[in-house]
């Protein structure tokens, strides 16, 4: 196996996850953390939680967007290298949920950045989150392959 194939394979099999709490109530966040712990063990899919946006392939966002953190969210998203996938965990991230009517809430995170996978639930169950992340990994694979084709065309 050449180096290129090796990198390609590891990329598809081990997406790195960045988690950002975007004015969530913590419910979904602790469930995401629970996904990494022994019972649910996200790492069996090769997913590792990282703290640096530049290392991450999948962005997991919980909670609604407010006026102060929309800049932060956009900033984090822009720093991630292509290809990238965004997973919105919980109803708040999808639509604003129970906080929808609060004055400082903009709504779902798709108002600020494009979202690929929505995971419903209040809070989303670990099983649902893992399912969502697995879907995200597949979308990432697709995006990666599309990118490769685009590069070939540009050559």
């Amino acid at each position: 196996m050449g180096l290129k194939e090796f990198v390609e394979k590891s990329f598809k099999k081990s997406p790195w996850v960045l988690h950002y709490n975007c004015s969530s109530c913590n419910g979904c966040d602790i469930e995401i953390l629970a996904c990494m712990t022994p019972l649910y063990d996200m790492e069996r899919f090769g997913m590792v939680n990282v703290g640096n946006p530049k290392h991450a392939d999948i962005l997991v966002v919980t909670g609604t967007v407010n006026h102060k953190n929309k800049e932060v969210l956009k900033n984090i998203y822009d720093q991630m290298p292509e290809p990238k996938v965004v997973v919105a965990v919980g109803v708040c991230a999808a639509t604003g949920g129970i906080f929808r009517e609060a004055y400082n809430v903009l709504g779902g995170i798709d108002k600020v950045i494009p979202v690929d996978v929505y995971v419903p639930g209040c809070p989303a169950k670990p099983e649902a989150i893992i399912d969502g992340l697995y879907k995200a990994a597949e979308i990432l694979k697709e995006k990666y392959e599309k990118m490769g084709k685009a590069e070939e065309v540009l050559k």
């Binding site: 407010n66 006026h67 102060k68 800049e71 004055y103 400082n104």
Partner: peptide, 11 residues
Amino acid sequence: LFLGEYSPISP
């Protein structure tokens, strides 16, 4: 403290 520069004025 809570609101950003572009936030709405608290009602």
